[in-house]
């Protein structure tokens, strides 16, 4: 359903993604793990098309030269050079790193902006689903996005992405800066989303512990290259992964 083949990305001459190939079938959760600067966000930006936009802007301003090589195939269609809004239309929705909530909009408005691509019956249905999935949002539905706590913002960000009716949901570091309790709660919700919405999900995360149990397949990124991959069982049994991510 979704496949990235031999992605290479250069900032000027610096290699940020080195020959990364990854696949994700419908109804699967794929994990991408790596430390800071391993290339997780770069990968997510490349898959969602934001990198295409950054590249264009840098080119306009005469800034950094960004080169993208490789292919991204989604539902049999080559989306490698599509701009982000068209990729979103095709069903690839990114929930960006650091959540990027609209700070001066209320929770409901944030969700409604997320529903830009949805028709009115989808909007209504998904709105109900999001409040059901994250009951904590109901109480604060009139509050401005900028005044929410980190956990609330993350729930809102995921809900907002769901409003766009994703067929492939890209979650970029959804657990960043959150308490362990909320991390496990969100991991559970991500699994529920897969089960109930039938969307494929790719999660990029450095905290492997809460995410590893819910994924079907995972990749370990190091310096921009996918060095290890396997099912969650294989990854958890791998001694290198164990020592790096589980401290054993």
């Amino acid at each position: 359903m979704f496949e990235a083949r031999q992605l290479m990305l250069f900032y000027e001459n610096m290699l940020a993604l080195n020959n990364v190939s990854l696949q994700c079938e419908a109804d699967r959760i794929v994990g991408v793990f790596g430390a800071n600067s391993a290339g997780k966000s770069t990968l997510m930006y490349t898959l969602s098309g934001i990198m295409e936009d950054i590249q264009k802007k840098e080119q306009m301003a005469g800034g950094e030269r960004i080169t993208i090589r490789g292919e991204i195939i989604f539902q049999g269609r080559d989306v490698t050079h599509l701009k982000p809004s068209l990729r979103a239309r095709a069903g690839i929705i990114l929930c960006p790193e650091r959540r990027r909530i609209f700070p001066e909009c209320t929770v409901v408005e944030n969700l409604m902006i997320g529903g830009y691509l949805a028709n009115s019956s989808q909007t209504e249905e998904t709105l109900g689903y999001v409040f059901n999935l994250f009951p904590a949002l109901t109480r604060i539905s009139k509050r401005l996005g900028g005044f929410l706590s980190g956990g609330e913002q993350q729930m809102l960000a995921i809900g907002r992405s769901l409003m766009a009716q994703p067929r492939l949901l890209l979650l970029d570091e959804p657990l960043l800066g959150l308490s362990p309790m909320i991390q496990y709660m969100l991991a559970k919700s991500i699994k529920e989303i897969r089960n109930q919405r039938g969307a494929a999900i790719i999660v990029a995360e450095q905290y492997a512990r809460p995410i590893m149990p819910i994924i079907d397949y995972g990749y370990i990124l190091e310096n921009g290259a996918a060095v290890v991959d396997g099912t969650n069982k294989e990854l958890m049994d791998n001694p290198d992964v164990k020592s790096a991510y589980f401290g054993q």
């Binding site: 990027r100 609209f102 408005e109 902006i113 691509l117």
Partner: peptide, 14 residues
């Protein structure tokens, strides 16, 4: 309004 507050986030939503 979304575009005015966070261009990149708005782009990810189509």
């Amino acid at each position: 309004k979304g575009m005015a507050q966070d261009e990149r986030a708005a782009m990810t939503l189509g």
